[in-house]
Design a protein around this nucleic acid. Structure first.
Length: 355
DNA sequence: TCTGGGGTCCTTACACGA
DNA sequence: TCTGTCGTGTAAGGACCC
């Protein structure tokens, strides 16, 4: 088998860049894409704003203290979605095996491409000319290395690296560079004296298995040496849809919560009908004022996508739970999809079974 | 300094039928 | 018939990602 050549393509400051193409007068200024509400967080910041320490997922209130002159722009997901389709449409006209991994990033398999780096440079130029979006690209023998490489020289990065070379180069890096190791895992690993990739490489696999379990232990050991044989998945099936709302002020009143649930159910029902989907599992999510999260779900005998049923079940789940503290966030989720067109015969078949 | 919204996947626990 | 187990579906919570 030919050695794999995998690229990770990542749009630089995607949302902020789309906003700049809509409003060129903002070019060169610190821009923060965020809602303007007391509990909003930063969706993206332009590189000018990042210089002040502003970063994604930061409380917008804090971001504005760090960078008081920043210009706040409300997110406009429709235009991001349009820009995203344009970018990945161009990439797909040049490359056959592309896995989109988010609105602003994708993996591509260039194993069978002649002169892959040259082709990638052409694609980058083409995307930039057509959309104004700048890509950072990482190239490696697997998805893990490609993903890490695309982050090494942002913005407008272009980094190709082999596995052994990457192992050496990154030995001193934090384990947080490994996708899948988040704050909690990093803390657990640090408690075992493991904070860098090099330290993880030095840990015997059996020790990792002993401490973190069979599956996780093996996974960590493979990641330490940047092994990753996961294939690109070019088509994915939607598993769930949800709608949630964080209140500006915590809510105590059950009827107010139910009114919000009904609005969310309406939005979800619309969305499911547009996509011709029906789901059997309806759930709610409640975040209390102390940040405890509670979920409740019920699976129905037949899939649904109508507002009344979704709202009815969700409200009942909420009443049964009866939040013991003020509620900060409420959400509704529908999962267990069957395409509406094929769900109907299934349901008829079930109903036809003798009781 | 306070922490959004929309997702996916994993783990654990439990119920149930074969 | 009893018992253990195995697979499956469901529920709940949590970690993580963009």
């Amino acid at each position: 088998m030919a050695k794999r050549v995998i690229a990770h393509l990542d749009c630089d400051a995607f949302f902020a860049t789309v906003e700049l193409t809509k409003r060129p007068e903002l070019k060169g200024k610190p821009v923060i894409v965020s809602h303007d509400s007391p509990r909003a967080v930063v969706t993206t910041a332009s590189y000018e704003a990042r210089k002040f320490g502003v970063g994604s997922a930061m409380a917008t209130s804090r971001a504005l203290r760090l960078c008081p002159d920043a210009i706040l722009v409300s997110p406009d997901f429709e235009s991001y979605s349009t820009a995203s389709k344009a970018v990945w449409g161009i990439v797909r006209t040049r490359l056959a095996v592309v896995q989109q991994a988010g609105i602003d990033e994708a993996y591509a398999d260039l194993t069978d491409i002649v002169k892959p780096l040259k082709v990638l440079r052409e694609i980058i130029a083409e995307v930039h000319d057509a959309t104004g979006i700048q890509l950072s690209v990482g190239i490696g023998p697997n998805r893990l290395i490609a993903k890490i490489a695309s982050d090494l020289d942002k913005p407008a990065g272009f980094v190709a690296i082999g596995r052994e070379q990457a192992c050496e180069l990154l030995a001193g890096s934090s384990l947080r560079i490994i996708p899948g190791i988040g704050p909690k895992s990093a803390e657990r690993l640090a408690a075992s004296g493991l904070t860098t990739l090099g330290e993880l490489q030095a840990a015997p696999e059996q020790e990792l298995i002993g401490q973190f379990g069979e599956r996780q232990g093996r996974w960590l050991h493979a990641r330490a040496f940047l092994h990753d044989d996961s294939p690109l998945v070019t088509s994915r099936v939607l598993k769930s849809r949800s709608s949630e709302t964080t209140f500006d002020v915590d809510v105590n009143d059950l009827s107010e919560l139910q009114a919000v649930i009904r609005r969310q159910a309406g939005r979800l029902a619309q969305d499911l009908q547009t996509r011709d989907l029906q789901g059997r599992t309806i759930g709610i999510k409640v975040r209390l004022d102390d940040w405890t999260n509670v979920t409740r779900a019920r699976t129905l005998g037949a899939p649904v996508n109508d507002e009344a049923t979704i709202a009815g079940v969700a409200c009942e789940l909420l009443r049964n739970y009866a939040p013991p503290r003020p509620v900060r966030l409420i959400g509704v989720r529908v999962a267990g999809f069957e395409a509406a067109a094929e769900a109907e015969p299934v349901r008829r078949a079930q109903l036809a079974l003798p009781v």
